[in-house]
């Protein structure tokens, strides 16, 4: 049924543009993508542009989260997985058991912003150890006031806002700050929806929160950015500081994973090459930080080499 429909639609399209002879546009097929909701806006933007050039290739981008996406990817159910963290050892072992091989490509960077309410006059920067002291599991019920972090800060209650425990953002933040992924205090306002966190911090003078840099950018007037000090002085997150790695440890790479078998298909090859060509302009548009030229070149080379090795036709 599906094949017939594709055949019919393809032949119709072929018929209708027979005169123009647009060779590359005759690419057809379906590309199944799933994974991180953080990477999703980038892939969505690429798919949107791709559609304009190759209207007959069907690109479906789902967002089950990095982990949910990998579950399908390692079973060979999807062609490409968006990921906001590298594949885990466990996921990799399942992939191997299923005979799935893949290539990993870095496509952008994302900064995690630490923010407070604009009416908060005391907190302009914060040390990584202080963040650890606030967020580690032992802090639960103990670190409840601002002056417990730094004595010169006022004796006011501390209200915490952060990503929900199911998100890759939470995994990343806890790994970078507490030192162990998926380990933090539990008594904070958690939400998978960053807009809820923005709302919370912007209406609470005693709030301290963290979420994706893109959400700060869109709500600059309601939030105050806090510089993070990892021992080399406080650094505010920005395109430059994330790109040149001085904003550390709260910046992370975003990936796409491509199934080797899928990469033998022409439409998937085209899509990934197109992806790498477009990310420099599309990544900033959706609020993330692009790779530096050298990094992008390295990723492109990695992909080209992979292609030349796996190209069968």
């Amino acid at each position: 049924m599906r094949k017939i429909a594709i055949l019919v639609s393809t032949s119709l399209v072929l018929f209708s543009c027979g005169g123009k002879k647009q060779e590359q546009n005759q690419l057809t097929g379906t590309i199944n993508i799933d994974g991180s909701s953080t990477v999703y806006p980038i892939t969505e933007a690429v798919a949107e542009e791709f559609k304009k050039v190759y209207p007959d290739v069907k690109v479906a981008v789902a967002l089950s989260g990095t982990g949910g996406g990998f579950k399908k990817f390692v079973r060979g159910e999807t062609d490409i997985n968006d990921a906001s963290r590298p594949i885990s050892h466990y996921e990799d072992s399942v992939a191997k058991a299923n005979g799935i091989e893949y290539i990993e490509l870095v496509v952008a960077y994302d900064g995690l912003a630490v923010v407070v309410n604009p009416k908060n006059t005391w907190c302009n920067d914060i040390k990584v150890e202080e963040l650890k002291k606030i967020w580690e599991p032992e802090a639960q019920g103990k670190i409840t006031h601002w002056n417990q972090i730094r004595p010169e800060w006022p004796n006011q209650p501390l209200h915490l806002y952060g990503a929900g425990v199911e998100s890759g953002t939470y995994d990343y933040f806890t790994e970078a700050i507490v030192g162990k992924a998926h380990s933090s205090r539990g008594d904070y306002t958690a939400s998978e929806d960053d807009n809820v966190l923005v709302q919370g911090v912007s209406s609470d003078v005693n709030a301290l929160g963290f979420f994706g840099f893109a959400y700060y950018e869109e709500n600059k007037d309601k939030l105050k950015l806090v510089a993070v000090d990892n021992g080399n002085g406080p650094v505010l997150p920005s395109v430059e500081t994330v790109k040149n790695k001085t904003y550390s440890p709260l910046s992370r790479p975003l990936f796409i994973y491509i199934n080797n078998k899928a990469a033998e298909r022409k439409e998937v090859q085209e899509f990934v090459s197109f992806y790498l060509d477009k990310i420099t302009s599309l990544v900033p548009e959706v609020g993330y930080i692009p790779l530096s030229n050298d990094e992008l070149q390295a990723v492109k080379t990695k992909w080209e080499e992979f292609l030349s090795k796996h190209k069968k036709n």
Binding site: R2, A5, D34, E44, E48, K58, A60, A62, L63, S64
Partner: peptide
């Protein structure tokens, strides 16, 4: 069931 999806094609069947 996985309908949280970005697709560029309209459903036809």
């Amino acid at each position: 069931i996985g309908a949280m999806l970005y697709i560029t094609t309209i459903p036809t069947h």
